[in-house]
Simulated scan of single mutants.
Amino acid sequence: MKKSIVLFFAIILLVHSYESVLAREAANISKISDMKQAMDEQGIIVKKWSLYTKGSVGFTSNLKGYRQKAALLKNAAKGYKWNTMNMQEHLKITGVRISQAGSIKERLTLVGYPQKGKLATYLVYAVEGKGWNKNQFQHFARSFQSRVATYFEGKTSTFSCITGVHSGTMDVGLYKQALELMTTFSAVPVEELKEETFVSISAYTKHWDEKINTAHKAMNLQIAIRNQGMGGQTAVTIGTPIITSEY
């Protein structure tokens, strides 16, 4: 009887944890849509978007345990092509899957490294999308939530990023353009960098729960704009809580 009660509550906890992950990742997906809308309002054409999720997969006592984790991951992640890399100080396997249309690339990386006599492991799930196709993005969004809940065992951190270009002549300067984008998210500036051809603003918005702490204040939004020279395009990147791609 006691075992049945314990099992019942264990199942309840697992279901609650799974549903919590689904809700959290749904919010992360919606941030990409929010950033896309902000770019649309400014006449910026989206060139790529990305999601980067990282989380611990716990400790294992030896290489055999790491290989077991790798086998479980491969079993859960169908359709990936896997490569194994054994470095001097850590172990790494990477799986890549590309959508049929070729516009979305998924990458899973499981890393193991020595820590306190054991092997600590963490997993990175990176997704990159080319351009913007609303139907393809919505189709992927529905599966992204369940994939994160399946691949990861515990707490994760997800970074969202979108990059576009303004091909015409901008009516305002780089800094003012960045401020206008920031206002779209009802954000307040935390840090900023202004150069002749490059502007970066770190900000905080109450619309998103996740945040990171800087030396000054909490932040969860970054906007970067780079002018690519006379007659060239202006590259715009928005990321939360920070930009993870090069700009």
Rank of each mutant, 00 (worst) to 15 (best):
K3W: 12
I5W: 09
V6L: 11
F8L: 14
I11Q: 13
I11G: 11
L13H: 12
L13N: 13
V15F: 12
E19K: 14
S20C: 06
S20A: 11
A23F: 06
A23N: 09
E25R: 04
A26E: 04
A27Y: 10
K31S: 08
I32D: 07
D34K: 04
D34N: 11
M35V: 09
K36Q: 04
A38S: 12
D40K: 08
E41Y: 12
I44F: 03
I44C: 05
I45M: 13
I45V: 14
V46P: 04
V46T: 07
K48W: 05
K54G: 11
G55R: 00
G55T: 00
S56R: 03
V57Q: 07
A71K: 12
A71G: 10
L72A: 14
K74N: 11
A77K: 03
A77S: 14
G79T: 06
K81D: 09
M85L: 13
N86G: 13
M87K: 13
E89P: 09
E89D: 14
H90M: 12
L91V: 10
K92M: 09
G95A: 12
I98R: 01
Q100C: 07
A101N: 15
A101V: 12
S103Y: 07
I104H: 06
I104T: 12
L108W: 01
V111W: 04
V111A: 11
Y113L: 02
Y113C: 02
K116G: 15
K118Q: 15
V124R: 08
G131Q: 08
K134W: 08
N135C: 11
Q136E: 14
Q136M: 08
A141V: 12
A141H: 08
Q145Y: 03
F152D: 01
G154F: 15
S160F: 02
C161T: 14
I162S: 01
T163Q: 03
V165Y: 10
H166G: 09
G168H: 06
M170V: 03
V172G: 02
A178Q: 00
L179C: 11
E180A: 05
E180L: 07
L181S: 00
L181G: 00
L181Q: 00
T183M: 03
S186K: 04
E191H: 04
K194H: 04
E195Y: 01
E196T: 00
V199D: 03
S200K: 02
H207N: 14
I212G: 10
N213C: 13
K217C: 10
M219E: 14
L221G: 08
Q222G: 10
I223P: 00
R226V: 11
R226F: 05
Q228I: 12
G231P: 03
G232N: 08
Q233F: 02
A235F: 07
V236W: 02
P241E: 05
I242F: 08
S245L: 06
Y247Q: 06
